[in-house]
Design a protein around this nucleic acid. Structure first.
Lengths: 208, 208, 208, 208
DNA sequence: AATGAATGAGCATTCATTCAT
DNA sequence: TATGAATGAATGCTCATTCAT
């Protein structure tokens, strides 16, 4: 009986945690981590300020959880694409375009997850997240190297560079795209840039 | 006489401004813009809080000034290298390695100048600064395309990508390098990655 | 149960608000709005600075509230007298003497409410307050004109003038009365001055 | 020789004082005493901040001087009119309309001189200024009482009330006139209101 | 377990006044 | 005498965290 009650309690507690995290994710989606305060979160979740501290030690660890959940969703999406069928070249291209498109369409969230300084705890986790991303890209790159589709290179650098390019080109401006290109054209450009470097494929039939 | 006095005064004032800016730069070098408060700056410079406001309207414009001074130093260095002699390939390579090396050695400052959100005024200036960087790289890239050393491509994307790669790989971690590589090796890797994409040169005699 | 708790909480919150407002009123009574600072108020109420902001958005809205509460008390008193029985002449006379007496006895508060510049929000409210005052006086004046007790005239001007006279004669000096007259005599003078103008009644049996 | 030099110096000093006072008057004309700072005044006069303190002990006494000069100009104008020829009724009427017109046309200055809280020193002087005004009005009123044009009354109250009415009706709103009346009509109304009370003259041929 | 009121350190900014040159 | 750079106390406001109920 007691055990069961505890079980129930635990489940309830976990549900509350998730609710809080989801609400927090919503907040960072629209205003970044800056807009996330304990008070606004509590209000949003319909609970008291003090209650938040029953589920999270302090704001830093709340942010950490929020960061983890949000990034894991992104990671899973990219991971799915990467594990799909197709040549490494195709799969890497798809991963890059997907990542790019998501970055454009959730620019504020992408900015928060990739750039926004939050606290040392999160910064450390961000390194892990970047590593995870890199690992996904790296896996494809390694396969491509093995199949001779890609040239020999530092897979760590290549994977990290992809993130850097997309972040710099699409996320950090937190603004409009160059209107010289459509979204599709721009994403295609980015893909080509990355693949030229990794696959060392000379592009043809492209005119600027 | 009066003229001289004014001259002297102006020089003195400019000297004090510079002192403050330098002290501020020191602060952002070790703790980023976050650690820069008017009080800490005043204390650091051995003056009163109110005195800071004799030299700067408000904190926002102080930050702007600090940002400008620090970035202009960086820009000038890269610009010098870019305008030197050598083929576009050589010059772009040199620019990339120089930028990389400086980023590694003043990581906290590089982070502050490239990433740290400060205030809208600085963010606008940052766009200019990024454009200036891109323009330097773009100039070489355009020359390279004209001399057929580089392939046809979006020079805007290429230039921006360079900044993104270096930022992501070297600056954002705000941490140690992968110990697999020496600093020199890593920088060489970055250069190769960028040049492969821009010059589409197949690397040879490289072993990983 | 929950409902009750909310009720209680609300009542408590309202009580605290009132406490703060009352403390603030006390402060303006002795030193005007100038002497009212968030810190002094907090200290006076025995709470922390931050707590004040649980009850009021900002200092401006606190001042507005304080202003409203204090003026509404004054308005209600004058209004009661004005709606009482008696001829317009009698009622207007009573309203003027009551207003005068209160102005004398809470000179600093009267000054704060009528003259002291505070902030745009309060200035706007002050216009409303003056309008409300004028309306009370105007209502009696209009009745008096209808009953031919008062002559035809600009009721707006007449009502405003009453406030002006009392303010100038009793409030603004922020000092002692002419010792030539007793308080009662002086108030009687003011009443006669106003009524002569409004009712155009030639006074008789008065000796100076 | 020394004596002469001192003379010259004194004259020079006096000239500087006047320059400063005039500049200060200009400032309060456009922005009230609030806008008058030692720094803005020094800049306006083309001298150093510290120099201002060679001519005035402190800001309070500067304000006092400025207040005195500005009010004395106003007083002189009203005084001229009051000492002119005509019956007391005519002269009082003229004084009231002149005062009113000046108040409307220099509302900001009128506000500063009549209402704006500055400092205890000035507040005391303001009482003198009001007394001076009252004295001018009083003189006419006393003459009118002697000539039986005006009824017996407290001349102090009557004189003060005039100031109060004009201040309340024209100055304090620091805004537009009721658009029901033209400026001339409104001033005429005010005159009539005052004269009805003081001269106890039943107005005729007026329609509202 | 939940509440939510209370905390208080921390920061940008203003301006009359001083004093060494 | 004139300068003007320097002073520093004072104030409104924020928000993560605590704790009595």
């Amino acid at each position: 009986m007691v055990y069961k009650a505890t079980e129930k309690t635990k489940a309830h507690k976990q549900a509350r945690r998730l609710l809080l995290i989801n609400k927090a994710v919503s907040q960072i989606k629209s205003g970044g981590f800056t807009s996330l305060t304990i008070e606004s979160l509590a209000q949003d979740a319909g609970i008291a300020v003090g209650t938040v501290y029953k589920y999270f030690d302090c704001k830093a660890s709340l942010c950490l959880e929020v960061f983890k959940v949000a990034t894991e969703i992104e990671l899973a999406i990219i991971n799915d694409i990467s594990s799909g069928c197709g040549t490494p070249n195709e799969r890497l291209g798809k991963a890059i375009t997907t990542f790019s498109r998501r970055a454009i369409h959730s620019q504020q969230q992408a900015f928060a997850l990739i750039f926004e300084p939050i606290n040392p705890l999160v910064e450390m986790e961000r390194l892990n997240y970047r590593k995870a991303y890199a690992l996904i890209f790296e896996k494809i790159i390694i396969e491509g190297i093995e199949s001779k589709e890609f040239i020999e290179q530092s897979t760590y650098l290549a994977a990290t560079a992809i993130v850097g390019i997309i972040a710099e080109v699409l996320v950090r401006p937190l603004s409009q795209l160059e209107n010289k290109y459509t979204e599709d054209q721009f994403i295609e450009e980015i893909k080509q840039f990355c693949l030229r470097s990794i696959a060392c494929s000379t592009p043809y039939n492209k005119h600027y």
